[in-house]
Amino acid sequence: MTDPHLTRQDEEISAPDYTAEKRREAYDFGNWPEILGLALTLLLVWLTFAFTG
């Protein structure tokens, strides 16, 4: 299964196709995934040291 859209470069895509692709990829989650990941990592480290001594 090969999808030709996966290997196309931005220069090869026409302007309307490029804007449509960018519109589909317009998810903006902000910084909260990184902050949540950092908090969960710190919790895991703390739990590891708290219960293993």
Rank of each mutant, 00 (worst) to 15 (best):
M1E: 08
M1K: 10
M1S: 11
T2A: 15
T2W: 08
T2C: 13
T2V: 11
D3W: 15
D3M: 05
P4L: 04
P4I: 02
H5C: 15
H5L: 14
H5M: 11
H5G: 12
H5S: 15
H5N: 15
L6T: 08
L6M: 07
T7Q: 09
T7W: 03
R8M: 06
D10H: 13
D10W: 13
E11N: 09
E11L: 08
E12C: 03
E12V: 07
I13H: 03
I13R: 00
S14A: 01
S14G: 04
P16E: 00
P16W: 02
P16Y: 00
D17V: 03
D17M: 07
D17A: 01
Y18M: 00
Y18I: 00
A20G: 03
K22T: 06
K22Y: 04
K22C: 06
R23H: 05
R24G: 11
E25W: 08
A26H: 13
A26K: 10
Y27T: 09
Y27I: 15
Y27D: 10
D28F: 15
D28A: 14
D28G: 08
D28T: 09
F29G: 09
F29S: 13
G30R: 12
G30C: 12
G30I: 15
N31E: 14
N31A: 13
W32Q: 11
W32G: 05
W32K: 07
W32S: 12
W32P: 03
P33L: 06
P33S: 04
P33C: 01
E34K: 14
E34S: 13
E34R: 08
I35T: 07
L36E: 05
L36M: 02
L36H: 05
L36D: 01
G37N: 09
G37T: 06
G37D: 05
G37W: 06
G37Y: 05
L38D: 08
L38V: 14
L38Q: 04
A39Q: 09
A39N: 00
L40H: 04
L40Y: 03
L40S: 05
L40C: 02
T41S: 03
L42D: 06
L43H: 15
L43Q: 03
L43S: 09
L44M: 14
L44W: 06
V45I: 14
V45C: 02
W46E: 11
W46H: 12
W46P: 08
W46I: 10
L47T: 13
T48L: 13
F49Y: 08
A50T: 14
A50M: 15
A50E: 11
F51P: 06
T52Y: 14
T52W: 09
G53Q: 15
G53M: 07
